[in-house]
């Protein structure tokens, strides 16, 4: 979606003359409006998170992060992201590749299916797994006989996160690959390249920035998902609580500073993700 927009706009603004002829005050008014909106909707809330986190001092802040339950939540969140992002990257590339480079029946249905997790509320995303793998679900009795735990354990949390983050990579790649068409691949095939070779030498280099952007969005959502994970987590402290769940628990237990401290940790993870992205873009540009 958005991934392709910044790149094209950078290219055009570098080459073309100003696209508008409006008066200067219109320009400044628009910039001010956008700036104010950003300030109110993004900058201020972020500042509040940080000031609230440090309200009771550095000691409380460090203690909140060093708490074993917080550390276990951090570990679980990282594990979930580390598993879901690569898996959804592979799924996403495969789906986008199939949809854009081949002709087959039911393509429209497949695209709709990929979009489904965007359209469905995350709570439903969690509930479907409870209905399938829960003790009273389809596979419940079999799983319990074989002593396999999915719901209220790490596999369930990963499944729910996979579900809600599924569309990010595919949705990012499909418009991009559609734009690029199949000519380059066809040329490569004419020159004698085979499947995997075509993919790594031609397709992948063409889509790498869109792919990266999709992975970053996917990662951000995987680490931040609340609803679906809450349904399948079981809320066992130090075991199946992810960072977002831990933030809510602390808030409900009157530990406001600790809750914001953990929230600031999530924020930090998001910032690191964005920094990696900026660094990669910068490296590409130079």
């Amino acid at each position: 979606m958005a991934g392709t927009v910044p790149m094209t706009s950078v290219q055009t603004s570098a080459q073309a003359s100003p696209a508008t002829t409006e008066a200067a005050w219109v320009k400044w008014l628009l910039i001010a409006a956008a700036g104010l909106a950003l300030l109110w909707l993004i900058v201020l809330p972020l500042l509040i998170v940080i000031t609230e986190a440090l309200k009771k001092g550095w000691d409380v802040y460090v203690a909140a992060l060093a708490d074993p339950d917080a550390l276990s939540a951090l570990k679980l969140t990282l594990i979930v992201a580390l598993v879901t992002v690569p898996l959804n990257t592979v799924f996403g590339i495969a789906a986008a590749w199939a949809i854009t480079k081949f002709k087959f029946r039911g393509k429209g249905a497949l695209i709709t299916l990929i979009d489904l997790p965007f359209a469905v509320s995350p709570v439903i995303g969690g509930l479907i797994f409870v209905l399938v793998f829960g003790a009273n679900g389809w596979f419940g009795p079999w799983l319990s006989d074989h002593d396999i735990k999915i719901i209220y354990a790490v596999p369930g949390i990963i499944l729910a996160t996979l579900f809600v983050t599924f569309p990010f990579v595919a949705r990012e790649l499909i418009p991009l690959m559609e734009d690029q068409g199949t000519q380059e691949e066809e040329a490569a095939v004419t020159l004698g390249a085979r499947g995997w070779h075509v993919f790594t030498r031609v397709t992948l280099p063409n889509i790498k920035w869109g792919l990266l952007y999709g992975m970053i969005l996917c990662n951000a959502r995987a680490m931040g998902e609340f609803g679906a994970v809450s349904v399948v987590s079981g809320h066992i402290r130090g075991q199946t609580n992810t960072l977002p769940l831990h933030v809510e628990i602390l808030y409900n237990e009157y530990q406001f500073s600790a809750s914001f401290a953990v929230a600031s940790l999530l924020l930090l993870l998001a910032l690191v993700t964005l920094l990696i992205k900026s660094w990669l873009s910068w490296k590409n540009a130079h």
Binding site: V130, F133, G134, A135, N136, G137, G140, S144, K149, I151, Y152, G234, H235, I236, R237, G238, Q239, I249
Partner: peptide, 20 residues
């Protein structure tokens, strides 16, 4: 001892659905 907390009805539901 591990703990899990939530609304009483919801917790009961989770145990029924397989929270051990």
């Amino acid at each position: 001892i591990k703990q899990s907390h939530g609304g009483s009805g919801a917790q009961s539901r989770s145990v029924i659905d397989g929270l051990e």
